[in-house]
Simulated scan of single mutants.
Amino acid sequence: MSESTDDHVAHKLYARMHEHGESTTEAAEALGFAAADVARARERLLRLRLFNPQTETTVDSAVALARGLESHHRALDQLLEQHVMTASLVKDYLSVAARRGDDVRVEFYERDRLAALHQRIDECAAMVKHEVAAMHPPAKWTREGLEAALARSRGNLGRGVRIRSIHAQSMVNDPLIREFFQVWLAAGLEVRVTPVVPTRMLIYDRQVAIVQSEPGDPAGGAVLIRGALLVRSLTALFETLWTSASEPQDVPRAASGDALTGQQTAVLRLLATGAKDEAIARTLGVSTRTVTRIVGELTALLGAGSRFQAGARAARLGWLD
């Protein structure tokens, strides 16, 4: 059964339980749903935090959305805190370890040594044997730069190297990056996107890492770190982001929400509270038909199969912050 059909069953099941105070079994019997369909719908509602398995009751959609946003923000806070700690290690402590002769070597590339940095990146790419892991925050890319990186990646892929890259979700709006997403995937690269990428980072064989020294300044230089112990920690940061990131095709183009009209934004915020079309229409002073049309536009824009899925995706994209 398709995802859209599963979501339709989940929507109907949730609405019936919520409106009539019925159990899962009672609602499924009233709706005539098969047991297998109900099981998938139950799992979907659990993932959306719309179902309490202990009490076998529904959770108000506004409460579920608030909890989801709180959880998402906590995860981002932890991620950013970890990045600050990593930056502190790089800035204040790694040189001490290097002077002691520990298994850590650090090379600093200031903004006036970017040519040397690019040469070092080329050397690392040529020597990698097993895996490249990359993180890319929002940046201004040129076609020439992307073509050069693609040629390097194709050479590595031909040698059996696994290449994974995480990009800032806002880059989905860039036509050039959207084009290259398709090219990268067709070439064999693994690509995902996530709302927050704290800094640019390249990791080679979990032994060497190149980290942008100034997160807000791509031209501000970088730090090259050699040493399995510390690079393993940086790899763990990458893996955490990779696990929670999305496939590019699952993210709408308007990833920043900037393309929404004021009326669409208002409807989306009211949807997040669990308001029905009639209540939204009264609040905004428009017809119910207008609200229904706007809800349809939002679900299409978000690539969602229902208003519930639209709310969940909008929250994940940060449109409701």
Rank of each mutant, 00 (worst) to 15 (best):
Q263L: 09
D250T: 09
D217I: 13
A259R: 05
V223R: 13
P215Y: 04
R232Q: 13
T261C: 00
E214M: 08
R253N: 07
L271H: 02
T240E: 15
I225Q: 06
Q249V: 03
T235E: 15
L268I: 00
A254T: 11
A245P: 02
L234V: 07
A219F: 13
V211A: 14
P252K: 06
G257K: 10
L260P: 07
S244C: 04
T240A: 13
V267S: 00
T240Q: 15
A219Q: 13
Y204N: 12
A209Y: 09
D217G: 12
P215H: 04
S244A: 12
L241A: 03
V223Q: 11
A245F: 03
G221I: 04
T265M: 03
I203W: 11
P218D: 10
A254H: 11
S213G: 12
A219I: 06
Q263N: 06
L230M: 11
V231T: 05
R200A: 15
E214Y: 08
T199R: 15
S246G: 02
L241G: 14
L230A: 04
Y204H: 15
T261G: 01
D258M: 09
D250P: 00
A255R: 05
D250H: 04
S213W: 02
I203Y: 10
L260A: 09
P248N: 04
G227Y: 04
S246A: 11
A222E: 06
V231Y: 08
A266M: 00
G216F: 14
I210V: 15
S256K: 06
Q263H: 02
I210K: 03
A228G: 12
M201Q: 09
L237R: 13
V208N: 05
Y204T: 10
I203G: 11
A272F: 06
L237C: 07
G262H: 02
G221F: 02
D205S: 12
E239T: 03
T261S: 09
T261K: 00
L224A: 13
R253E: 14
G257I: 09
A228C: 07
L260E: 08
P252I: 06
L268R: 00
R232L: 11
G221H: 02
L202Q: 10
P252M: 07
G220C: 03
Q212W: 03
W242H: 02
R206T: 14
A254Q: 13
R226Q: 12
V231W: 06
V211K: 06
A236M: 12
W242V: 03
P215I: 08
D217A: 15
T199P: 01
G227Q: 08
A245N: 01
S233N: 12
R232N: 11
T243C: 00
A209W: 09
S244Q: 07
S233Y: 14
I225K: 03
L260F: 06
G257N: 10
Q263K: 07
R269P: 02
S246E: 06
V223A: 10
R226K: 09
R253K: 13
D217W: 06
T243M: 04
G221D: 06
G262W: 01
Q263S: 10
P252F: 00
T240H: 15
S213I: 08
E214Q: 13
R206W: 11
V211P: 09
V208D: 01
D250K: 05
L241Q: 13
W242T: 01
I210W: 01
D205K: 08
L237G: 12
